[in-house]
């Protein structure tokens, strides 16, 4: 069966199937974007590991970052299986040639930023990841199932910090509100431009690669997060936000798309510093990867129990 017939018949595509160049390109594009976002998201948050404000929070933050690196690993591996080169993908990310989530271009100067990144921004990413559990490429859909299971913990972890601030001292409540004022429009922008039905997004839809549009995902996000934010006594910094009963859609002030475009193409306030730090780490550990490549395996088997025994 041809690829498009299979998709039309509701079949998942598997690694043994013959892919068209177009399908492979579009698929790799979104996989690289979600992989990069996991990676850079972890990178933004890990800056807080040394100074996480309690023993418990530190353990949770390390665990969360571990999950994100794991998610990135699984997705880069998948893109590799589809023909991309892992080093090359990392190199082009580090050279700033490759996109990742807008939120991870901004600084996280306060601890509450870490709570809000986990709750509001992972929550936004979760809308996309959840929809990708139904993507037409089976191996990607399977990865997304594990990703979503683990992301649930990230969101709980973030919400726990938010609740601590919402019910804490006046200073904490003020910092929380100021934090939401900073992050709200970034979360709204996370889903990307309103679907203009560009040829590319049309094809992503037809090929079942991205099952939900940017606007559908954004609306879903409002459904969940507007009541939650209000429940914590937080003012959402958009006077025009309301639910239109007739259209059954949320109306909102369009965010500053110019800023969005600038951030995702030219980078934000923290982009260069983060990419530089990661590039340095990449170069400083090259000798380790070289050693692995040179290892001839002569000492293997000592710990492995032979399963055929």
């Amino acid at each position: 069966m041809k690829l498009e017939e299979r998709i039309a018949a509701g079949q998942l595509i598997e690694s043994g199937d013959e892919l068209t160049d177009e399908y492979r390109e579009l698929l790799c594009g979104i996989i690289q974007f979600t992989a990069n976002s996991e990676f850079m998201g972890a990178f933004a948050e890990s800056e807080w590991i040394p100074r996480a404000p309690s023993y418990q929070r530190k353990l949770a933050l390390i665990a969360k970052n571990q999950d994100e690196i794991g998610h990135a690993q699984m997705q880069y591996q998948l893109a590799e299986d589809l023909g991309r080169d892992r080093e090359q993908m990392l190199t082009s990310l580090l050279a700033g040639e490759n996109g990742f989530g807008n939120a991870f271009h901004y600084p996280a100067d306060e601890w509450i930023d870490i709570g809000l990144l986990a709750w509001m921004l992972d929550g936004a990413a979760m809308q996309l990841q959840h929809s990708l559990m139904k993507t037409s490429y089976g191996p990607y859909a399977r990865i997304m199932k594990r990703v979503c299971r683990e992301e649930e913990f990230h969101i709980r972890h973030g919400e726990h910090i938010v609740r601590e601030y919402a019910t804490g001292s006046r200073e904490k409540q003020e910092r929380l509100q100021a934090g939401v004022d900073r992050w709200w429009s970034r979360a709204v922008m996370f889903f990307g431009l309103s679907d203009s039905r560009s040829e590319k997004s049309e094809r992503m839809d037809e090929l079942g690669i991205k099952p939900k549009t940017n606007d559908e995902l954004r609306q879903q996000y409002f459904d969940t997060y507007v009541p939650k934010l209000r429940n914590y006594g937080i003012d959402i910094p958009d006077e025009n936000l309301y639910y239109d009963e007739e259209t059954e859609q949320w109306e909102y002030t369009p965010p500053d798309w110019e800023e969005f475009n600038r951030i995702v193409t030219e980078g934000g306030p923290e982009t260069q510093a983060r990419l530089d730090r990661r590039r340095t780490a990449f170069e400083e550990t090259a000798w380790v990867r070289d050693a692995l490549e040179a290892y001839d395996g002569t000492t293997a088997n000592r710990f492995a129990n032979n399963i055929t025994a």
Partner: peptide, 23 residues
């Protein structure tokens, strides 16, 4: 469960132990 890139099967096993869902 997952695919890991490794130098040999012994190391693959060591990496696998912490690259599967550790919950």
């Amino acid at each position: 469960a997952v695919t890991v890139t490794a130098s040999d099967r012994e190391m693959a096993l060591t990496l696998a132990k912490r690259n599967v869902d550790v919950r």
